[in-house]
Design a protein around this nucleic acid. Sequence first.
DNA 1: CTGTTAGCGCATTCAT
DNA 2: ATGAATGCGCTAACAG
Lengths: 342, 342
Amino acid sequence: MNGPERVSDHMPTVKEVATLAGVSPMTVSRTLAGGNNVRPQMQKRVLDAVRELGYYRNETARALRPGQASGLIGVAITNLANPYYGSFALGVEEIARQYGRRILLGNTGEDAARERQLVSDFVGRQVEGLILVPSGGNTDHLQPEILHGIPLVLASRIVPGIDTDVVLLDDIGGAYLGTKDLLEAGHRRIAFLGNAESVFTGQRRYTGFTQALDEFGLVPDPVLVKRDQQDIASARTAMKALLDLSEPPTAVFASNNRNAIGALMEIGARLRLGADAAGFPAIASFDDFELAELMPVPVTIVDHDPRELGREAARLLFTRLTDGAMASREVEMPTRVHAARE
Amino acid sequence: MNGPERVSDHMPTVKEVATLAGVSPMTVSRTLAGGNNVRPQMQKRVLDAVRELGYYRNETARALRPGQASGLIGVAITNLANPYYGSFALGVEEIARQYGRRILLGNTGEDAARERQLVSDFVGRQVEGLILVPSGGNTDHLQPEILHGIPLVLASRIVPGIDTDVVLLDDIGGAYLGTKDLLEAGHRRIAFLGNAESVFTGQRRYTGFTQALDEFGLVPDPVLVKRDQQDIASARTAMKALLDLSEPPTAVFASNNRNAIGALMEIGARLRLGADAAGFPAIASFDDFELAELMPVPVTIVDHDPRELGREAARLLFTRLTDGAMASREVEMPTRVHAARE
DNA sequence: CTGTTAGCGCATTCAT
DNA sequence: ATGAATGCGCTAACAG
């Protein structure tokens, strides 16, 4: 055991280290900064004292000095419990770490007030940049003047009236190709399960859906369009209604994995009651999900990489931190369409 | 538009607000602190100036003052991309927010060196507490002396030699009951798919598994025990080996959802080649997973709530912050065993 | 090479 | 009810 010995319940300061080492605080500071212009002998005494006291440099005090950055990036996410946003956060953290920054994380729960509060706290904590999955609603708190020039990157969704860097998925293209896959399999009666219209991605995915239909000379049948499901339970209810139609759809395009899973759960429930799998619609899902290939009906996946989305958001932020002023950038991350498979 | 007007690229300070409002910095500070002993008329002038400048109180400077807490909790997680840890982090954030604290989040990737670096950075940032899913390996950086009394809560896993608050799952009990469920269904040839033995939870779940077998007068068959799978791919490989035995198991206990999913994927692949579902083993899975009820073989779930685990970890931390010294606490969160179902 | 001075933004203490 | 002085921990800038 050769850990620190003279430890205490309070954080030691440079001063205490200096006293123990018999030098001035500046010598400690310089040693910790890399040891330029400090005799090796002095450095050793300082480092010994640091070890003995278990000293940590107080980053808070350090960041207070003029021109010093906090080393913090504020990240606000709508729902951490959604695996997609967990992976997104991981991607951000990964790049931030490469740049020596730490992540301040907050969950907005799709609540604009909480988002506002979070952003405000982040700014008060002197974050160097913000990465945000916006939750909609009032967005005054995202105005560049309010942020005093703190760079902001939006992910997944755009905020009208805010001109800033954005990383999006290719929602339209992905939904288009996913729907087209169903059309090419011969389906003509295709339902749409999606988010509330106000949600930016939901709108874009619906657009892609209609584009594909249009190409086959079809228009969406209002009876088959259900756009208000935010969770698995409501998606399942919507699916139930579709299946109970006198003329149910032969395929369903689900604009996210919550809706796809809800739909499949309803199918599963009916199968357990003895129904025949052949009678149920095929599913296309924007977002991959585990075990899709074991489903009793054909499943098409519009796949993408949330972790890479997070990485890209962070990259946008750090290039802006480094390069300074430039026009806003909008990056669209690709999607891939494939049958459910391992 | 009635946002701030005299905005600038730098953060305004109390001083600037004071000047604009024609008062002293102290009047600004007091107003922002709640307005005690400040005439309403003064308060209004201050608040107007705050709005006009887009002023945010500098939390960094605030925290520097003696006796002031940083309002920050350091959270280090092994793998944010795992949905379970995303939910865990959400639970922590939820409680932390209730207590007015913010989360500093880091991903360790099961790497002890990164964990060490993270903890050290967190301490340097004056976090008020640490919540950690330990990644194993060297643990000197978790010694209470090193942390200078910063409270530490460990989640999911224990670290030998570190006497601190811990939240665990009832790994043993859950694995016991999950295995028993298989035994009661008549299975006698039960395989085990699990984590590397060094992982604390893996060990505990194996213990529960053997306890259940023991109760039925059985001992684990070494041929049927595979304990080195950390991801879905390796789990699938292990399952393949089991199915190819001359006498394959009639049931499989998977000690986490990665292993359960890998096993099911292998079954799925063989079904697609025309095999009969009736010939495959039943599965019990520690950890729930979506769509378990649509699987082609019977699935038993050992269910638990990672979000509640996170909440409980945070609660332990905050009670310690409030109540100060007390003996270390160990909380075991319950698990529930049930057939796969909606 | 090393030490002293000074100040970052804020709020506690003490005057007024 | 308000303001002035002071210091939190740290490190540029300037002595020496």
